[in-house]
């Protein structure tokens, strides 16, 4: 089997395993490339009928292209789309102009928290990858979170072979990471192979493109001439620029990501 199919088959196994073991699950779709690929594979795993809601955590500061893409494919793919917003924080004026850590925490983590509680979700699919960030490289495929959302990273459960930990305590939930073993390059090769639609912010315009997308105010483009998926693959085969170099949250401090994640950030 070719290496990309191997990654895909493992992801399908994990999606099906978590759906079986946790029953009440949901998939987090940021509309970025990784979660769009995860969604694509989930459609395969469940034969086109994804049996759980797809959640978009909407900070209201996303790129307009993201909203257009979301609405189009939610319709085309027949998704049970759930848009989750921290309305109270937005009314109180929370924005990226304030402190970025506080903004990420309120508009993403807190919004997610309330959706998990409202829906009594037992597991959440997230498309994080090990090669994105050193902290994410330490994650398990099935990673329990406590009632108050804490990630007990100092005492993670053993995860042996493909026998995943799915027992959780009352009020806890599990973060399931079906894309953990993919690299950025794998993602693009797969997008190319499968012809997966992707937000066009990733494609170069006027010599610049986004390698990682989120809120418009906190992402900056990188210099690039890659205006097709093929060219993105070529570019990544030789680049030495870090993928998240344009993401503000990674830059503030060496441990911002650890702190955000230990509080329940994705």
């Amino acid at each position: 089997m070719d290496p990309i199919s191997e990654l895909e088959n493992k992801t399908i196994y994990i999606l099906r395993e978590a759906h079986n073991r946790f029953k009440n699950t949901a998939l987090l779709w940021s509309i970025g490339k990784d979660s769009t690929v995860m969604l694509w594979i989930a459609r395969k795993a469940f034969f086109g009928q994804i049996p759980f809601p797809v959640i978009h955590i909407d900070t209201s500061y996303k790129f307009k292209e993201i909203y257009a893409f979301r609405d189009r494919y939610a319709r085309e793919w027949g998704l049970d789309l759930l848009v989750s917003k921290n309305e109270a924080a937005l009314r109180a004026g929370m924005s990226p102009q304030k402190e970025k850590f506080a903004c990420c925490h309120a508009l993403k983590t807190e919004a997610l928290k309330s959706t998990i509680h409202e829906r009594d979700l037992k597991a959440l699919f997230l498309a994080i990858r090990r090669d994105e960030h050193g902290i994410r490289a330490k994650e398990r495929y099935f990673s329990p979170r406590t009632l108050d959302f804490q990630w007990n990273y100092k005492d993670q459960p053993a995860e042996l072979w493909n026998l995943y930990q799915s027992e959780i305590g009352k009020g806890e939930h599990s973060r399931v990471h079906p894309m953990l073993h993919w690299t950025e390059l794998d993602i693009w090769r797969y997008v190319e192979r499968e012809k997966i639609p992707i937000v066009d912010l990733y494609l170069a315009k006027n010599g610049r493109r986004y390698r990682s997308i989120g809120c418009a105010s906190c992402c900056s483009p990188v210099d690039s001439r890659a205006d097709t998926i093929r060219k993105i693959v070529k570019e990544l085969e030789t680049t030495r620029v870090a993928e998240r170099s344009g993401r503000a949250q990674d830059k503030e401090n060496a441990y911002t990501m650890q702190k955000l994640r230990s509080l329940g950030y994705m």
Partner: peptide, 10 residues
Amino acid sequence: RFVIEQDLRV
């Protein structure tokens, strides 16, 4: 191969 669970943990 197998894992042994007790008290909900491997």
